[in-house]
Write a protein that binds this DNA or RNA. Structure first.
Length: 318
RNA sequence: UGCCAUCUUGUUUCCC
């Protein structure tokens, strides 16, 4: 079952829910983990109808081990902004764990209901470090950076994510100096911390600092590479962006999409289209950037033509 | 020196 679960999880993570479901249906026996993988796979990709339908037929929903599937659904509805459904599930579930509370808290916070988020945080019988990190994020998300910092200072212990959330909070509000102070103080940094800094400085137009941090990074994942591409592109350095793109050891689809956007904005539609055609595997955003790139350039006829070819490749416009 | 699952942090999809 373990190996089958891994396979289902692998497909689900890729967003290939059809294949995930096929394995799910065909495997010899499912465990609670299998169900959680499949339900959360749907939920994380915005397919809440499928997630809820599958959850309906899940056995032993009242068992404590089923809370992960409940939580996945709650988080999914929260992300979609369907707080009513999220809350209904939260109220209905027989055994709530901390992640259940954190899921509903995040749901409210991400949809502008900061007071509800705070009340639930206070109402929870216990909080873990994720709860605290979620509250930092909640305040940051709702433009309350000082309160976010208050939570950060007050919380009982901090992990790398705590530091990352707080640093990102400052960066997202353009407060580079406090961000840098925390960055320098942070006991442990990871790729997320550094990438956030690269992006934050680039957004503020400090490309030299941005690229210096990027080049100093030991581990550059595909997000980091993409951030550097975007950093150059958004500051008008298309050639440098292309150079980073060429240098990247592994280009994921987001890097391609960024280059398409960059070229389109630069007026080089030919190059944009050429790259679009060369993408190893297109995702939803690839189509979106290509269509809007053409549309922005006044080539609405071409945009419509690309749009019409969506379904030919099995895509459904959203 | 590789990971079966839920909740919190960085990137591409108006402008910058």
């Amino acid at each position: 079952t373990y190996s089958w679960n891994s396979l289902v999880a692998a497909f689900a993570q890729k967003g290939d829910l059809e294949r995930a479901r096929m394995v799910f249906d065909r495997m010899p026996e499912q465990s609670v983990v299998t169900w959680t993988v499949m339900v959360s796979g749907y939920a994380q990709h915005g397919c809440l109808d499928e997630a809820a339908a599958l959850f309906e037929s899940m056995p032993n929903k009242d068992a404590p081990t089923s809370s992960w599937a409940w939580n996945a659904l709650i988080a999914g509805f929260g992300e979609l902004g369907d707080l009513q459904s999220a809350r209904r599930l939260f109220d209905a579930m027989p055994v709530r764990d901390i992640a259940s509370w954190n899921s509903i808290i995040t749901g409210y916070a991400e949809n502008g209901c900061l007071d509800d988020a705070k009340s639930l945080f206070d109402a929870a019988e216990e909080q873990n470090i994720v709860s605290w990190n979620s509250m930092i994020r909640a305040y940051s998300r709702n433009a309350e950076v000082e309160r976010a910092r208050g939570v950060f200072d007050r919380m009982p212990g901090r992990d790398t994510v705590s530091w990352n959330v707080m640093i990102a909070a400052y960066l997202q509000h353009g407060s580079l100096d406090p961000a840098k102070d925390l960055f320098d103080l942070s006991p442990q940094r990871d790729t997320v911390t550094e990438t956030a800094m690269v992006y934050g400085y680039a957004q503020a137009g400090h490309l030299a600092v941005s690229s210096a941090i990027f080049e100093s990074m030991k581990e550059k994942d595909s997000v980091a590479w993409n951030v550097m591409i975007v950093a150059y592109a958004q500051n008008g350095f298309l050639a440098e962006a292309a150079e980073v793109f060429d240098r990247a050891p592994r280009r994921d689809v987001a890097c391609w999409n960024s280059m398409i956007t960059a070229n389109a904005k630069n007026g080089d539609l030919e190059r944009a289209v050429e790259m679009f055609e060369r993408i190893p595997s297109r995702d939803c955003a690839s189509w979106a950037v290509m269509i809007s790139g053409l549309g922005q350039s006044g080539l609405s006829r071409d945009a419509r033509r690309v749009f019409s070819s969506l379904d030919l490749e099995g895509w459904r416009p959203d």
